[in-house]
Amino acid sequence: MKDEKLKDRRLVYYKDDFDQIEKLLDEYVKLSNARCVFLIDKEGHLVTQRGISQTFNAATLSALVAGAFAATKEMARLLGETEFSVMFHQGRKDNIHLSLVGDRAINATVFDEKTTVGMVNLYSKELTAKLAKIFEIAAKKITSEPAFETGYGDSVKDRLDDMFKE
């Protein structure tokens, strides 16, 4: 039981699903004319990013997006909703559009004046539906991905030791 729970909390993305996800995101960036898109776990881990995004610190953005989403969940609760599925932050030049994908991820789209929030909203709805489906199927299937190599954990510990030599 304990182990099952642990496994459930582990978000695993297999290679073939991942390829499919990236393909969908690429199409989405093209269709919506957005600058870039980030797919982020609800726990704040970045899954992947597509489009032109060199200037962003993706890890921090992911942590903040997940945090912001969780915070608005509290807001939703006060209004009697379970959660808000879409959030939008407008800037002077760049904007960010956040939408929930199934119950495990968030799709964060950064866009500028080349497109509109309406377009982004429209295409992101399609995208999230498709992504949610992939997640749903992925959760059920078994694949033969190579497992962690033996001694992986110990190697990471060695690396940490190297990094923090006192």
């Binding site: 582990r10 978000l11 695993v12 993305y13 297999y14 991942f18 390829d19 990236e22 776990d41």
Partner: peptide
Amino acid sequence: MQINYGKREVS
């Protein structure tokens, strides 16, 4: 924890 075989990444 995220295990991403697509990017070969553990977070």
